[in-house]
Design a protein around this nucleic acid. Structure first.
Length: 494
DNA sequence: ATCGGCTCGCGCAA
DNA sequence: TGCGCGAAGCCGAT
């Protein structure tokens, strides 16, 4: 790659199929699958680099299939909202933004290959979770054009280390040593700002676009008819939270300007729902943690010189920012990227066997303890347990696609306690979280769900039935700690 | 309201 | 070898 182009760090670029680029191809393809935004995006920067270097137009394909696991009105709507934003923003640039929505099962088959067969190179997003690694590998086998996957997941490149970490403090200590050089590596705020990309003419790909028509602005903006026409799960309704980079930006600004000031204390006060509510935007790639970091640093008047000389994995004081900024960075950098690291490098990272030894041991010792209650997946899903707090949390998940951050822990702990086996509990948690949570199907879902069974945690006494030495939580105590009246009314039985 | 004990593993100082 | 401490807890004693 050219020395004069804005550099995407080599560590973040991976050749999927080992094929060479084709300099006589007609255009560069950016296949947008995970980082669904037009700025703060190393993956798109890389595609722009190619286009500039070889003097070829840029085609951005953002596709949405019908048959991905858990496809529903809820997730489709979120992604389509993002496409509407990207279409709007790309309109002022000389690129071909091509939003493709599959209308009938299998209709989209062949589209990527049709583009790839004429492309110089295809650049896509290297996301370590859900079906993405398999999809990327399969796409690489189906094309003889060079396919590159680029890591724009977080501040630390996924390939910076092969190690996996058993506890947040270990990863934090590692980050405090390894992260500083990477903090200078930022993607472009506006990947399409460079004017030296050759224009994509209006006739480009006309015949491809006749066979696989792009979604138009109107149906992406006003989505109910489109959603209703698709063969997806309509029982999981559109969530109150709107998807897309524009909404993500708005929520981030609001959080930064209004909610962050109470963040350090707010999180320790279980009464307030002090979460940033950015996780759906981060999950769908509508928001970048690089932007979050850059904006935060600017607000804090921070420079790398402020970093403390001691690096012992301490939770606060290392960055040299305000308490609330450091508390937030611990979430969005340490904890978020801990999960990504595990997803990218952890053997069997989503399996029971990946739990720490002490946790597996104690869970096994209590495997045959009688459960105080046992519910089926269907009873859990329809919020028919004996516990009104648990039922309310489940109803919030079904209706809004999220759960209050404290209750989310209780929700998982109780599914563990009220299932026949830990494996069945895991299955229930993953099904419900994957199906309903806007931020589900993410490496951080693994972290959150497995935390309930001891991952990243330590043993706690006294030893109890079912839990053994796994940290225990109870609805009775939750009732004492949280003011739940409003919540229980809002999420009472329908 | 606050405190200690419950319990495990790891890095680091000694 | 021992010490300190860690995502969010619980419970009983004070």
């Amino acid at each position: 790659m050219p020395a004069d182009a804005p550099s995407v760090p080599d560590l973040r670029i991976r050749s999927v199929n080992g094929a060479p680029e084709r300099p006589d191809g007609e255009f560069v393809v950016h296949w947008m699958t995970a980082f669904r935004r037009l700025g703060w995006n190393f993956s798109l920067d890389r595609a722009v680099d190619w286009a500039v270097r070889l003097g070829k137009p840029l085609v951005i394909l953002e596709a949405l299939r019908l048959d991905y696991p858990w496809a529903s009105d809820r997730f489709h709507d979120f992604v389509l909202g993002g496409m509407a934003d990207n279409l709007e923003r790309a309109g002022s640039h000389p690129v071909l933004y091509y939003p493709y929505v599959e209308r009938a099962p299998g209709a989209g088959r062949g589209l990527l290959e049709a583009l790839a067969s004429r492309a110089v190179v295809v650049v896509t997003d290297d996301y370590p979770g859900f079906f993405h690694p398999n999809m990327i590998a399969a796409a690489g086998r189906r094309m003889d054009t060079r396919l590159e996957a680029v890591d724009s997941n977080g501040l630390l490149p996924l390939r910076a280390t092969e190690r996996v970490f058993a506890r947040a403090v270990d990863f934090r200590r590692y980050l405090q040593k390894a992260l500083p050089p990477h903090l200078h590596e930022l993607p472009q705020e506006d990947s399409l700002a460079r004017t030296d990309v050759p224009a994509a003419g209006p006739g480009l790909l006309a015949e491809v676009r006749r066979r696989w028509p792009a979604a138009d602005r109107h149906e992406l903006t006003d989505r109910s008819l489109l959603l209703a026409s698709l063969d997806i799960d309509h029982s999981v309704g559109v969530a109150p939270m709107q998807g897309g980079a524009a909404q993500a930006e708005r929520r981030w600004r609001d959080f930064l300007e209004e909610d962050l000031s109470g963040y350090a204390e707010g999180r320790n006060d279980p009464d307030s729902d002090a979460s940033s509510r950015l996780s759906p935007y981060l999950h769908f790639g509508h928001l970048s943690s690089h932007q979050v970091f850059a904006d935060l640093a600017r607000r804090e008047l921070w420079t790398p010189m402020d970093i403390a000389p001691v690096a012992r994995g301490q939770r606060s004081g290392w960055w040299g920012m305000s308490q609330e900024a450091e508390a937030f960075l611990d979430q969005i950098v340490t904890w978020r990227e801990l999960g990504y690291n595990m997803s990218a490098h952890g053997d069997r990272s989503s399996r029971f066997e990946s739990l720490p030894d002490w946790a597996r041991r104690t869970i096994d010792e209590h495997r045959s303890d009688p459960r105080p209650f046992v519910y089926t997946l269907e009873e859990f899903e329809t919020a028919r347990t004996h516990d009104e707090i648990w039922n309310a949390a489940q109803r919030q998940l079904v209706r809004e696609g999220r759960i209050h951050n404290y209750l989310r822990m209780l929700w998982g702990k109780k599914i563990f306690e009220w299932s026949e086996t830990p494996e069945e509990a895991l299955h229930t948690m993953f099904v419900l979280n994957d199906k309903y949570a806007l931020d589900g199907r993410d490496p951080n879902s693994d972290s959150g769900i497995f935390w309930c069974l001891g991952r990243y945690d330590r043993a706690w006494g006294p030893e109890r039935p079912v839990f053994g030495k796994i940290r225990f939580m109870s609805s009775e105590n939750t009732r004492r700690k949280l003011r739940l009246k409003g919540y229980l009314e809002a999420f009472g039985p329908a």
